[in-house]
């Protein structure tokens, strides 16, 4: 299924200054999806640890937990036909509850949390569902226009079942007034496409007296069903 570029960010988004020198100027060259793009790496649960999906404790000292409002983030990974994508690796990373990343290039004044690393990963179940536990990240300032603040967000890296589905995106939180002001968000030219990057509170999935929940469904490209369903092993 060809990519719908009307719902994807342009390479060059002038208000997002980093893109000006990092955006190719030539048009992408279209090509048929070949076996190279129609197959992708496979990750298995045994390559992950038992706490990889739990950012509240996976970097915490014994007996401690990460600082911040406890959250469950969950949803389904789908393809464009609406089918769940099982067995897919999702990696996430985020700032801590004060908006600081555990990264040597992050110079924000807000403090690190010794009990929060900021990374997690999970493999979707047989229905394409995923879930991880984390804390609410805070907005943070970034050098762009002089006074830009990122809305609170979680970064997602998603593998599907073929390399053409590879996706990196960011999830935002409903009601954040910084979303509409963000040059990175606004690199996406379609308001409906932006709306689908905003996770919604999900009271049903809330754990009483423990964690609020947000739901974020992710849709990957394609697929060409006949090709996949008949795919011989290791074509």
């Amino acid at each position: 299924m060809p990519r719908d570029w009307t719902r994807q960010p342009a390479a060059r988004a002038p208000a997002y200054r980093s893109s000006s020198m990092r955006s190719p100027e030539h048009a992408r060259i279209s090509m048929p999806a070949t076996p190279t793009e129609n197959i992708g790496p496979v990750f298995t649960r045994d390559s992950l640890g038992p706490l990889d999906h739990d950012l509240i404790v996976n970097h915490a000292r014994p007996g401690q937990t990460a600082m911040g409002a406890r959250l469950i983030v969950h949803g389904r990974l789908l393809d464009q036909t609406g089918r769940g994508v099982p067995g897919a690796l999702i990696e996430v990373w985020q700032a801590n509850a004060s908006g600081r990343y555990r990264h040597k290039r992050d110079g924000y004044l807000a403090p690190l949390d010794p009990d929060f690393g900021g990374c997690g990963r999970v493999i979707t179940d047989q229905n394409g569902a995923y879930m991880f536990r984390t804390i609410m990240p805070a907005p943070y300032p970034w050098p762009n226009g002089g006074n830009d603040w990122r809305p609170a967000h979680i970064h997602f890296s998603v593998f599907g079942q073929c390399f053409a589905q590879r996706l990196v995106t960011q999830m935002y939180f409903e009601g954040d007034p910084l979303i509409a002001r963000c040059p990175i968000v606004n690199a996406v030219p379609d308001q409906d496409a932006i709306a689908r990057l905003i996770a919604q509170p999900d009271m049903e999935a809330t754990v009483p007296m423990d964690a609020r929940a947000y739901r974020f469904d992710i849709v990957l490209r394609g697929r060409r069903a006949s090709y996949f369903e008949n795919r011989p092993e290791g074509i």
């Binding site: 299924m1 990519r3 719908d4 719902r7 994807q8 960010p9 997002y16 980093s18 893109s19 970097h59 789908l78 393809d79 464009q80 036909t81 609406g82 990696e91 996430v92 990373w93 990343y101 555990r102 990264h103 040597k104 290039r105 992050d106 690393g117 900021g118 990374c119 997690g120 990963r121 970064h155 890296s157 996706l167 990196v168 995106t169 960011q170 990175i184 968000v185 690199a187 996406v188 379609d190 409906d192 496409a193 932006i194 689908r196 990057l197 992710i218 849709v219 990957l220 490209r221």
Partner: peptide, 25 residues
């Protein structure tokens, strides 16, 4: 058909999620 989720930049701290050991986590 559903629409593919929009891409967003990986940003400057992509290592935290994709290769945490390589960036000191």
């Amino acid at each position: 058909d559903l629409h593919e989720t929009a891409s967003q930049t990986a940003g400057p701290y992509v290592h935290i999620g994709c290769m945490p050991n390589a960036c000191g986590i």
